[in-house]
Structure formats: structure tokens, C-alpha cells
């Protein structure tokens, strides 16, 4: 079968490309990125001039890459839910969603189309940020392949954020509640995954952490920590060779996962899987054949 564009992706991109929102969004994105760049640069220059000899400044410029990346990661994680949370509720408000559901599009392809169009829009932004990122590479002296890996992680992150947003959009009637619910979901993914570890380490005060760190496989913060550690220093979970866990500190699984790049790749797989499950849940929710009671409709 010929691979076709998802009609929703095509339409969304057509519509977005013509709206002023895209231009303003790009402008804001670039502005924030430039600000992060300048801030990082001034910090690095101060460090260079106060402590070390002049030549060493360039050694620090390598850190422009993680700083700018983290800035972009934060922006992406924050704006994707706003884009996708209104995706379904917005269509519902116009009742174009009903029309869509009466076509041959399956609920899953509708939901996937919405998330893919959000991911593509994010890639516009990232592409626009490339020149600033490239500066970090030229002066920092990093391999260009890192830039490619970074784009891959951004796709993964926007897929996760988009799936969270689309599920909330399917659950809520109004876009604004969907956005708020998305951030509540974030709290679960980003903060609550630390909870088992904290309970074990701080509350129970046990020496052996067991497998309490495994939920962190789903946490993008730890994923990015690993990503940058691997790229910049070739080290793994929470530090270098010396501070790495020993067999007696953690459970069997965690010990083996924390060696080398295993954690990073497994975490990527887990985040991908989580996104997929969220998409399935959203598709299930928008399918009218699964609706329990039927939503309140506007009276005519």
C-alpha cells in the first residue's frame, strides 16, 4: 500500500502555515533561545576571566550545548500540551470532530495525526533554532552527530508531551482544562516517579535502594540527564565510575541497567511505549462506540 500523508497532518500544517500564530511562536522561541545563549555566554566568560587563564574559556563553551538544549527541551515540554490540548476539544467545538468520526479515519489515526502535526510544528521551531545551536558546536568543538541525536530526543519528547496533551484533550471538554490536566500529568511523570526512591532512601532510611529507581525509566528528566552525561562525559547514572552504584546499593535490575548506555536506550523505549499507550487511551476515549453515557451537547 502506498504510504499517504495523514489528512489531518496535511490540513493542520496548511492551516498553521497561514496563521500569524506560527510567526509569533517562532519569534518567541528564537527570542528565548537567544536569551539563554547570551546568559550562558556571559556566565562562561565570567568564569573564564575570574579563575582560569584566557585560553580556557573555550573549554567551557562546550557547555553551551547542554544549556541551549535544556532550554529547548523545557520550551518544547511546556508548549506541546498547549498545542495538542486544544486539538480535539477545538474540533469538538466546531463539531468538525463529529464529521471526522463519520469518515473512514479510525480514532487512532485521528489522534495520531493530531500528535504528528504537533511534532512537526515543534520541528519547525527546532529547525529555526539550529543556527544558534550551531554556534555552540562551532565554538564548543562538539561532533555534529550530537545535533542529530538531539533532534531525535526532541521528537521523542514532543511525542510524549503530545500524547499527554491529546489524552487530556480527549478527556476534557474545554481546551483550558485540558492544558491544566496535562500539567497535572506532567507532575506524575516528572515528579511522582521519584517518589518510590525518595520513600526508600529518605523515609525508610534503608541502605539498599532495591528497584525503587525503575519508575525513573519513564522520567524524561533522567533520560536527558543520561543523554547529556553520555554525550559529554561518557558516564552513566548520577555520576562517573567512582560514584556509580555498587551491587549492594541497588537491586539486580537497576545495577545492570545503570551500566553503560543501557539505561538511556531502555528509557527511550519506555518513554516511547508510554506515549503509545497514552495514544491508545486517547483513541479509545474519542471512539463514540466506547462512550459510557454520551457527552452533554449544546442544545439547538
Amino acid at each position: 500500500m502506498k504510504l499517504r500523508w495523514n489528512p489531518i497532518v496535511k490540513k493542520d500544517l496548511q492551516v498553521t502555515a497561514r496563521s500569524m500564530r506560527l510567526s509569533w511562536g517562532l519569534f518567541a522561541y528564537e527570542a528565548v533561545l537567544t536569551m539563554a545563549f547570551l546568559l550562558a555566554l556571559s556566565v562562561i566568560q565570567q568564569m573564564g576571566s575570574s579563575f582560569y587563564s584566557y585560553g580556557n574559556v573555550y573549554g567551557y563553551l562546550i557547555y553551551l550545548f547542554p544549556v541551549l538544549s535544556v532550554a529547548q527541551v523545557c520550551i518544547v515540554a511546556l508548549i506541546v500540551p498547549i498545542i495538542t490540548a486544544s486539538a480535539i476539544s477545538g474540533e469538538k467545538e466546531r463539531q468538525t470532530f463529529d464529521i471526522m468520526l463519520t469518515t473512514c479515519m479510525s480514532p487512532f489515526s485521528i489522534v495520531l495525526g493530531k500528535v504528528m502535526s504537533a511534532v512537526l510544528r515543534i520541528l519547525f521551531f527546532v529547525a529555526a533554532g539550529m543556527p544558534i545551536m550551531a554556534l555552540a558546536f562551532v565554538v564548543g568543538g562538539l561532533s555534529w552527530s550530537y545535533l542529530f541525536y538531539f533532534v531525535l530526543t526532541i521528537i521523542l519528547l514532543s511525542l510524549l508531551s503530545g500524547s499527554v496533551g491529546i489524552l487530556c484533550s480527549a478527556l476534557c471538554h474545554r481546551s483550558i482544562t485540558a492544558v491544566i490536566l496535562s500539567y497535572a500529568f506532567y507532575f506524575v511523570i516528572y515528579i511522582l516517579t521519584f517518589l518510590p526512591m525518595m520513600l526508600k532512601g529518605l523515609v525508610a532510611q534503608v541502605e539498599n535502594m532495591g528497584e525503587s529507581m525503575l519508575p525513573l525509566l519513564f522520567n524524561p528528566i533522567i533520560f536527558y540527564e543520561e543523554f547529556f552525561m553520555q554525550l559529554m562525559a561518557g558516564e552513566s547514572l548520577f555520576g562517573g565510575e567512582t560514584s556509580n552504584f555498587t551491587r549492594s546499593e541497588v537491586g539486580f535490575l537497576t545495577y545492570h541497567l545503570s551500566q553503560g548506555k543501557v539505561w538511556m536506550f531502555l528509557s527511550a523505549a519506555c518513554i516511547f511505549l508510554l506515549s503509545f499507550l497514552l495514544l491508545l487511551a486517547a483513541a479509545w476515549k474519542v471512539n463514540p462506540m466506547n462512550a459510557s453515557s454520551g457527552r452533554k451537547r449544546k442544545q439547538n
Binding site: R4, W5, P7, I8, K10, K11, Q14, V15, R18, S19, E93, R94, Q95, T96, D98, I99, M100, T103, C104, M105, K298, N300
Partner: peptide, 23 residues
């Protein structure tokens, strides 16, 4: 449907095109 909206920034031809490809 009894009530329906349309998209901003979409032309008639593209509107038809989108629904056609949805089938």
C-alpha cells in the same frame, strides 16, 4: 450535522481534498 463550523485558513478545494483523503 445540524451545527458545524469550518476551519480558518482553509480553502474550499483543500477542504474537499481533506475529507476525500479521509475516505
Amino acid at each position: 450535522p445540524d451545527f458545524f463550523g469550518v476551519y480558518d485558513n482553509l480553502k474550499v478545494r483543500e477542504y474537499m481534498d481533506m475529507y476525500g483523503s479521509m475516505y
